[in-house]
Amino acid sequence: MNAPVAFRQTSAMAIVSLVAGLLGWSLLPVIGSVVAIVTGHLARGEIRRRPDALEGDGLAVAGLVLGYLMVAMAVVGFLFVFLFFGGLLAFIAAAS
């Protein structure tokens, strides 16, 4: 006889992480990225604790990557704006 096939369910938090990561790149840049990072880590922990019942580690990793990339790009953007306008103000102050 055939052994019963174990049915593994996709983690809901992994799906939320991926969707929030995508929203972080479109509609909700800050909130979506933070939600993607938090739920991605929670989903990976949940999947590691119950590997026989849950799957979706790839979805969680994709959400984490999207979230962290958006946060990194935001930090680089803020640094660029701060340094550009700070340098511009220093140039104007030195010229006058």
Rank of each mutant, 00 (worst) to 15 (best):
M1Y: 14
P4N: 11
P4V: 05
P4W: 07
V5H: 06
A6C: 11
A6K: 13
R8A: 05
R8N: 09
Q9Y: 13
T10C: 08
S11V: 07
A12P: 06
A12H: 12
A12R: 09
M13L: 15
M13F: 15
M13T: 05
A14R: 08
A14Q: 04
A14D: 00
I15W: 03
V16K: 00
V16C: 02
V16R: 00
S17I: 12
L18M: 11
V19Y: 02
A20E: 01
G21A: 07
L22C: 06
L23G: 04
L23P: 00
W25Y: 11
W25T: 08
S26M: 06
S26K: 06
L27V: 04
L28A: 01
L28R: 01
P29A: 07
P29H: 08
V30G: 10
I31R: 09
I31K: 04
S33Q: 05
V34A: 05
V34L: 08
V34W: 03
V35E: 00
A36S: 13
A36L: 08
V38M: 07
T39L: 02
G40L: 03
A43D: 03
A43N: 04
A43G: 09
R44Y: 01
G45N: 13
G45A: 12
E46S: 10
E46M: 06
E46H: 06
E46P: 05
I47H: 00
R48M: 08
R48S: 11
R48W: 02
R49T: 12
R50M: 15
R50Y: 15
R50K: 15
R50T: 14
P51I: 12
D52R: 15
D52F: 14
D52V: 09
A53Y: 15
L54V: 11
E55C: 12
G56Y: 04
G56C: 08
G56D: 01
G56E: 00
G56K: 02
D57E: 15
G58A: 09
L59N: 06
A60H: 04
A60L: 05
A60R: 07
V61E: 11
V61Y: 06
V61M: 10
A62V: 12
G63V: 03
L64P: 04
L64Y: 02
L64S: 07
L64G: 02
L66C: 04
L66I: 04
L66E: 02
L66A: 05
G67R: 01
L69Q: 06
M70K: 14
M70E: 00
M70D: 01
M70Q: 10
V71E: 01
A72F: 15
A72Y: 10
M73S: 15
V75M: 10
V76N: 04
V76Q: 08
V76H: 08
F78V: 15
L79G: 12
L79E: 09
F80A: 12
V81K: 10
F82R: 13
F82Y: 08
F82E: 03
L83Y: 13
L83P: 00
L83G: 03
L83Q: 08
L83A: 07
F84H: 10
F84C: 09
F84W: 11
F85D: 01
F85P: 01
G86I: 12
G87R: 06
G87F: 10
L89K: 11
F91G: 14
F91Q: 10
I92T: 14
I92G: 13
A93P: 02
A95Y: 10
A95V: 13
S96M: 15
S96A: 13
